[in-house]
Design a protein around this nucleic acid. Structure first.
Length: 759
DNA sequence: ATGGCACTCCTTTTT
DNA sequence: GGAGTGCCAT
């Protein structure tokens, strides 16, 4: 037996088995909180310790955050024993595919796609889809872009090609979908662009159709590990299967009870059928929960038992007792937020929990707003898991569109975005004419811009403007292409970072967008925009520094990037940066070091844990979401979502629902979620606070009730300034709303308003 | 040509 | 409550 102290210590027999079963297919069913991350990281460390070259190991996750944390932990495990961890590939499915496609795009031989491709995010996708629908004359509204994109995404995840979609199309709607799919796909190729689903689909296709590439990659990666396997879709399944086909060293880790991405094409049968796919697979179940206290676990377990399509597995913990989870009915979303704040403030002050030990989860992003406002007012530091938010800001997208145009002038979505921003006299009419010219001559839009003099019906001013724009872009392109990014000697990365950031800065200046936003920057919001542009520049510098050290990390990316240019240029770094920027996830924004309370969707919460958790908005229509009414499967997924949220909690769990809630500006009364009814009464503390004021001291009588007694609805009061008015309502927090004939409805603080009852 | 304002419509979750 | 569109005034 190997003497590998450390990596096997402090593991249960099952965990240890999962770490040591290095050869052949392995399925680890890891229940919530069963030490999955511990097992995965030690398994990788163990492999390296056994002498497997790190670059032969590939670990795949769904988010950069998960990948980053995994890599950090493996590195520190190995670092403790002075083992070199360099060369490990721990990344997301999408990043891996993006890299593979950069390397093999030309081999793949898809017309219109080469290694300079752009990655379209959802905004770009929907911009492109709108153009496609317009061109097909389907922009009437019966075919909303989002629906179309959703359908196409499903097809791609199922690896259904344009051709087979056309073949299968049956009813009218499906036929239209396949028509749109065909046109949308063609449009992507015209732009030399791929969407997120293409990254997977095209990689799957590459592996299937090009045995020589497959063989190369199989040789490169002989040990494969996949996290959250229950959330893989068919394309991901195929990629994994193909990569593992030679070595059969594939270890998948997951939990069917935490499958929450079926709506995005995740196929739970990937994990359920693993054993029939690999009949000699080792199956290891990790059942003991090390995370949550007994009551929390019991409540979650009781809930998930309501799912009928499920193989039950017992959850057990040695952490007996604990604090009872609470389920509380609140008055409205403001009250709900105050209530959560109150609970957390108590934990912070009385139990010494740090803000970073706590998290609030919700079903939809829209629910974060009120919670955020409440926290801001209370001065509690918080962070919202919305990693994409920064890159979705208008000014940042504008800047990135300039950079994308430099790397890929065929990218029309980016080109259109910036062509007249800032306004440089290239009007809509001019663009329409140029577009017609492009179609007529069978060239790209950018090519048409280059040949603007040949285009008909353009005035001299427009031509001059276009020419100036084109030559600026060509100038950047030329420079980016011809500047070596790494200086010959003595560069520690700082020079590289500086050179890259400087280029980005110059693009922002010379394009005129910096000036454009500077001119606007009078208000606070506009100043923020300018600041964001500057932040983008420093993010470019940060990236270049990282890129530099990766580049000099011997053994890293050897085979995938084998044909990398000898002398990388500015353009290469720019491409790598834009790629990384395109693939950030919302959770990536979270950083437990910051010391802030975390706010995120239940989906983003998967894989995380916190000493204290609040799940808000447990109402019918919200959780389970209204859109899940259609099928029993969808409802069960909602229940799993709730389960995932609850099982993130280590010691304290608060669940809330509001009697009334304002959604999209309309206040509606709501019904408590059926999931609350499914929780066991004996280990969950239910309470109705909806009739109680904001004060939760049990013995203090309710100030709202008192106010209502003193100023009943409809009664008349006199105000020293406004005169006599009629009481409209009493508002929590010691306020009263009064309608005065003189000044209209006023909200006044009872304590200070010096009101007088009149008969 | 450009920018501002009022109108409508839509909203689940995400790489 | 937000984004996108279309119209109007500059």
């Amino acid at each position: 037996m190997h003497n590998s102290p450390g990596f096997l210590a402090q593991l249960t027999p099952a965990q240890r088995e999962a770490v040591e079963a290095t050869e052949g297919p392995v399925l680890v069913i890891a229940a919530a909180g069963s030490g999955k991350t511990r097992v995965i990281t030690r398994r990788i460390a163990h492999l390296v310790h056994l002498g497997i070259p790190p670059w032969q190991i590939l670990a795949l996750t769904f988010t950069n955050k998960a990948a980053g944390e995994m890599a950090d932990r493996v590195r520190s495990l190995l670092g403790e024993r002075d083992i070199d961890a360099r060369g490990l590939t721990i990344t997301t499915f999408h990043s891996l595919c993006a890299r593979i496609l950069r390397r093999y795009a030309e081999v793949l031989g898809v017309k219109g796609l080469d290694h300079t491709y752009s990655i379209y995010d959802s905004d770009d996708q929907s911009a492109l889809m709108k153009r496609v629908l317009k061109r097909l004359d389907l922009s009437s509204g019966n075919f909303p872009p989002s629906t179309m994109l959703g359908r196409i995404s499903n097809l791609k995840n199922q690896l259904v090609t344009v051709e087979s979609a056309q073949g299968q199309a049956g009813d009218f709607f499906t036929r239209q979908v396949s028509r749109v799919y065909t046109a949308y796909d063609a449009a992507l190729r015209e732009n030399n662009a791929v969407d997120f689903d293409d990254l997977l689909m095209l990689t799957a296709r590459l592996l299937r159709e090009h045995p020589e590439v497959k063989a190369e990659l199989q040789q490169r990666f002989t040990y494969l590990l996949i996290d959250e396997y229950q959330d893989t879709n068919h394309a991901q399944f195929l990629i994994a299967s193909e990569l593992a086909d030679a070595s059969k060293n594939i270890c998948v880790v997951g939990d069917p009870d935490q499958s929450i991405y079926a709506w995005r094409g995740a196929d739970i049968s990937n994990i359920l059928d693993f054993e029939s796919q690999y009949p000699d697979a080792r199956v290891i179940a990790l059942g003991q929960n090390f995370r949550s206290t007994e009551y929390i676990l019991k409540a979650a377990d009781e809930l998930i038992r309501n799912n009928e399509k499920r193989k039950h597995k017992d959850l057990y913990t040695e952490r007996e007792g604990g604090v009872l989870p609470q389920a509380t009915l609140c008055r409205d979303e403001h009250h709900e937020a105050e209530f959560v704040l109150d609970c957390f403030q108590r934990l912070h002050e009385e139990e010494g929990l740090r803000w970073s030990d706590m998290a609030v989860f919700y079903r939809t992003n829209a629910l974060s707003r009120v919670m955020e406002e409440t926290l801001r007012r209370a001065g509690v530091p918080y962070i919202v898991a919305r990693g994409t938010a920064f890159y979705q800001r208008k000014e940042v997208k504008d800047a990135l569109a300039y950079l994308k145009t430099i790397t890929n002038p065929l990218d029309e979505i980016s080109l259109r975005r910036i062509i007249n921003l800032p306004a440089r006299g290239i009007s809509k009419t001019t663009m329409e004419r140029l577009e017609r010219f492009a179609i007529h001559t069978g060239t790209s839009l950018f090519e048409a811009l280059r040949r603007v003099q040949e285009a008909p019906a353009l005035n001299a001013r427009a031509i001059a403007s276009v020419q100036r724009f084109v030559s600026t872009v060509l100038g950047w392109q030329h420079e980016a292409h011809n500047t070596a990014i790494v200086s010959d000697s003595g560069d520690d990365g700082a020079a590289t970072a500086h050179r890259f950031a400087d280029f980005v800065r110059r693009v922002l200046t010379e394009s005129g967008i910096e000036k454009h936003y500077k001119k606007l920057a009078v208000g606070e919001e506009d100043a923020q925009r300018l600041e964001n542009l500057h932040e983008l520049i420093s993010s470019a510098a940060d990236f270049a520094l990282l890129w530099f050290s990766a580049e000099n990390d011997e053994g890293r990316g050897v085979e995938i990037d084998r044909e990398r240019p000898e002398q990388p240029t500015l353009l290469d770094v720019l491409r790598a940066w834009l790629e990384q920027v395109s693939l950030v996830a919302d959770v990536d924004a979270l950083d437990s070091e910051v010391g802030a309370l975390s706010l995120m969707t239940l989906h983003a919460a998967k894989g995380l844990e916190f000493p204290a958790v609040a799940v808000i908005g447990l109402e019918e229509g919200l959780l389970p979401h209204g859109r899940s009414n259609e099928s029993e499967d969808a409802l069960e997924e909602e229940r799993r979502l709730c389960f995932v949220g609850m099982t993130r909690a280590e010691q304290h769990l608060v669940m809330t629902c509001a009697r009334r809630r304002t959604v999209r500006g309309v206040t509606q009364s709501s019904i408590a979620s059926r999931f609350l009814g499914e929780l066991p009464q004996d280990v969950v503390q239910f309470s109705d606070q909806s009739e109680v004021g904001y004060e939760f001291d049990d013995d203090a009588d309710d100030p709202l009730d008192r106010a209502r007694q003193e100023y009943p609805k409809g009664s008349m009061v006199r105000h020293p300034q406004f005169g006599v008015g009629r009481v409209h309502s009493c508002i929590p927090g010691g306020y009263v709303k009064i309608a005065f004939p003189t000044v209209g409805v006023k909200t006044l603080a009872i304590e200070y308003a010096r009101l007088e009852r009149v008969e």
